[in-house]
């Protein structure tokens, strides 16, 4: 990112590269959410495909958007593929956050694309994909990532995509091929996974139970109940290629700062 010289880092930015720190940072893709990067020992290993798991309303979309906006701030181009929410709704929600910078979207540093439009233009059946459909879609996702030279990619949600694939084998194949070709481009991917609210002790991070085994990492957005109040939590379940904290953090979503993390107080759990 320094080579092209086009990147201007403003003074307030936290992302100024420290001298001597660059060796450690090289292989990492910083989320730009300080606490999360600290938990990840610098960031997500570049090229990883990470499953961001949570029930509806747990902050997955916000976190992913912040990841892309922060990436743009560091000069890394990103793309957000939405399947569940139409574009206007998505941008309307995200505009309320202090971290959102319209400029990045206008300048093409952050691209938000409705995958349903793409698949419709490809003539794919909107409800079910057969093997040919899936491979056509995969090709197009790769081509788009390639064309835009993105370093960060989000699919929101992989659950909605898997729903259209008709067998476990197809899901496995799709995620595996997507992950490996994006990794080849040095692109770090976050796939959101929608799960129904879990019962205590239930350990399943994806609806189809397959996604979680193929992903390089799992970040779990859950909650704890404290005297009837729900406290949002974030936990890194696995992350290939880096040491990471396994403790639960309390997660705050503020309109000013977006996602904020702080260690979860444990006595109350």
């Amino acid at each position: 990112m320094e080579e092209d010289g086009a990147l201007i880092i403003n003074e307030k930015s936290n992302y100024k590269k420290m001298e001597g720190d660059s060796m450690k940072e090289n292989g990492k893709c910083k989320t730009g959410i300080d606490e999360l990067d600290r938990k990840l020992d610098g960031g997500i290993p570049k090229g990883n495909a990470v499953l961001m798991v949570g029930s509806s309303g747990s902050g997955k979309t916000t976190l992913c958007m912040q990841y892309l906006i922060n990436g743009a701030e560091m000069g890394e181009r990103g793309v957000f593929f939405t399947i569940t929410e139409p574009l206007f709704k998505l941008t309307k929600n995200i505009e309320n956050f202090g971290f959102y910078k319209k400029k990045y979207v206008e300048d093409g540093l952050v691209n938000i694309i409705d995958l349903r439009i793409i698949s419709e233009r490809l003539g794919l059946n909107s409800e079910k994909y057969n093997v040919e459909d899936a491979s056509a879609l995969l090709e197009v996702l790769k081509d788009i990532a390639d064309e835009l030279e993105v370093k960060r990619l989000v699919i929101d949600s992989i659950t909605a995509l898997c729903y259209r694939l008709q067998s476990d084998e197809m899901i496995r194949d799709f995620i595996f091929k997507l992950g490996s070709s994006l990794a080849g481009m040095g692109c770090t991917t976050i796939l959101t996974s929608e799960i129904p609210p879990t019962k205590p002790g239930e350990l399943k991070y994806s609806k189809y139970g397959i996604e979680e085994f193929i992903a390089d990492g799992i970040i779990f957005l859950g909650d704890v109940n404290r005297r009837g109040d729900i406290i949002r939590t974030l936990q890194i379940i696995k992350m290939r290629g880096t040491s990471h904290s396994r403790t639960k953090s309390a997660m705050n979503i503020s309109s000013k700062n977006g996602i904020e993390l702080t260690p979860l107080l444990k006595s109350g759990e």
Partner: peptide, 16 residues
């Protein structure tokens, strides 16, 4: 702050 039981949020807001 939504509720005095959101201790983590209180911590965050103080430091912010």
């Amino acid at each position: 702050i939504e509720s005095p039981s959101q201790l983590e949020s209180i911590l965050l807001e103080i430091m912010n």
